[in-house]
């Protein structure tokens, strides 16, 4: 990949500065040009990048180069720290209600992001934790969406609640919660249809569901390959419906996943899990530091710096 050698480039920028003990404004600026390009290549939103570079620049200028770190590494260290800070310094889990109170989780996102698959993946995780989840087929539009959820539910050994495609998603959601109450389920996961953030009618549908049932967590499912538009998508889902967390899918690909940074920057909501494959067990914990090094495309360098 083009920017795997970001660290090399930075070494070059600072080639003549090894002896310097302090980062000057000019040093930092020329180094951050390379960082900026790397972030843009990784699909971090242009405006987010600009803001980010500004923050790093302010922090880096005048810093003493530490023992064991050359100026290039010093800049990377600061970039990395700021990125992790922006991405939420620790891992987070889906918040569940305690005891027998029913937790309702609503999945939302663009078409094809991975909602239905992720719904089944989460069910598997919750089941392992001793919860009793009920999956609910609220996508009444996509051909065979219900069948898809049913097959996945069966693979996970989890019940799927469906009322066909002739009912409104709001009514299905309400009925599902009632069904859960009567039958001892303590988590209801609503799989909803994919929709565009600019489709008002469809966005209103999610708002209606939220108003009708007591949704504990609204989770935005985002394709990790998303480009510059991630800020619009995440921003509008959060603004119109209100989201509590994000799941990034398809990170088993070779995308750098800069959308993660953009989404965090516009919503401030935690990234809960990452999808690492099509199999229903392929859902992993999100680690901000690993994501940071993925976006920068230089895991090894960072590991080395962490230790310094």
């Amino acid at each position: 990949m083009a920017f795997d050698n970001l660290s090399e480039k930075l070494q070059n920028v600072f080639k003549n500065l090894r002896s310097k003990g302090r980062l000057t404004e000019d040093d930092v600026k020329s180094a951050l040009k390379e960082v900026k390009l790397a972030l843009l290549e990784a699909d971090v939103n242009f405006k987010v990048v600009k803001q980010f570079i500004k923050t790093v620049q302010e922090r880096a200028i005048g810093q003493d180069v530490m023992n064991g770190l050359n100026p290039g590494q010093m800049v990377i260290k600061i970039v990395n720290e700021e990125m992790i800070a922006l991405m939420g310094s620790e891992t987070t889990e889906i918040a569940l209600k305690s005891g027998n109170e029913i937790t309702v989780i609503m999945m939302a996102g663009l078409q094809g992001a991975g909602k239905t698959t992720t719904t089944a993946k989460i069910a598997g995780k919750l089941k392992q934790k001793g919860r009793n989840p009920l999956l609910t087929a609220c996508d009444v539009y996509r051909p065979a969406a219900i069948e898809q959820l049913k097959i996945n539910g069966e693979k996970q050994g989890v019940e799927v609640f469906s009322m066909g495609d002739k009912n409104k998603p709001v009514d299905i959601a309400k009925a599902a919660v009632e069904h859960a109450q009567k039958n001892g389920f303590n988590v209801v996961i609503l799989d909803t249809a994919g929709r565009l953030h600019v489709d008002e009618e469809m966005m209103d549908e999610l708002v209606a569901i939220k108003n009708a049932v007591d949704v504990t967590q609204t989770i935005l499912v985002v394709d990790a390959m998303t480009g510059q538009d991630a800020v619009n998508v995440a921003g509008m889902f959060d603004e119109k419906i209100g989201i509590d967390g994000v799941i990034l899918t398809k990170l088993d690909g070779d995308t750098r996943g800069g959308a993660a940074l953009s989404i965090r920057a516009v919503t401030g909501k935690p990234i809960l899990y990452i999808g690492m494959g099509e199999k229903l067990s392929d859902l992993e914990q999100f680690y901000p530091d690993r994501m940071a090094s993925r976006i920068l495309g230089m895991g090894d360098v960072l590991t080395m710096i962490e230790k310094a």
């Binding site: 394709d223 480009g227 070779d254 750098r256």
Partner: peptide
């Protein structure tokens, strides 16, 4: 290709 996709589409 999904129009929403960023640089990965090239790959």
């Amino acid at each position: 290709l999904d129009a929403t996709t960023g640089q990965n589409a090239l790959s």
